[in-house]
């Protein structure tokens, strides 16, 4: 049986445009899954993963359009790119309830550094993974592609 983490990673690959290896390489997959468990009401994460397991029959477009799963899915993208959770919309909370962890916050010092946005920018997380003296004088890596 596919593990929860595998389901989560499979979905995240579709959402982020980064490969399984790249996502696992951030070291954050377990922590993000835990963050979802902390924010969503009991059982909802598994329900969500089951829904997404129906990919590609169930398209990402359809998931994003869903009133229940759309906001959660968008938050997962922001989680991977920025390492932060964004409070779910009030309309969503009115239906599904609110957990204390559902607030705007950076998951951890590590998640901040693991954000894919820095990779996408051809850069590095501000304040971490220094590139070395003078590295800023050369063309960015991504600029070449």
């Amino acid at each position: 049986m596919t593990s929860r983490r595998d389901l989560f990673i499979d979905l995240s690959v579709e959402l982020t445009g980064y490969s399984r290896v790249q996502l696992l390489g951030t070291g954050m997959s377990e922590r993000y899954l835990q963050a979802l468990d902390e924010v969503l009401p009991d059982g909802m994460v598994d329900e969500f993963l089951a829904t997404s397991a129906a990919l590609p029959t169930m398209t990402i477009d359809a998931i994003l359009r869903s009133e229940t799963w759309g906001p959660v899915t968008r938050n997962i993208m922001i989680l991977w790119y920025c390492g932060r959770w964004t409070a779910l919309p009030d309309s969503w909370r009115a239906v599904h309830g609110t957990r204390p962890a559902d607030s705007n916050h950076v998951i951890s010092a590590d998640s901040y550094q693991a954000g894919l946005q820095w990779v996408a920018a051809g850069a590095h997380p501000a304040g971490a993974r220094q590139q070395g003296f003078g590295a800023w004088t050369v063309a960015p890596e991504e600029a070449a592609s």
Partner: peptide, 29 residues
């Protein structure tokens, strides 16, 4: 930015997957 650029791409432009990644690559840089 870059957080606000990500949020804009996801929430306002409805991007995901490789289109999201490509949009961020081409704008952030």
């Amino acid at each position: 930015a870059p957080d606000s650029t990500v949020t804009d791409a996801v929430a306002n432009r409805g991007l995901f997957g490789t289109a999201l990644r490509e949009h961020l690559r081409s704008t952030l840089s």
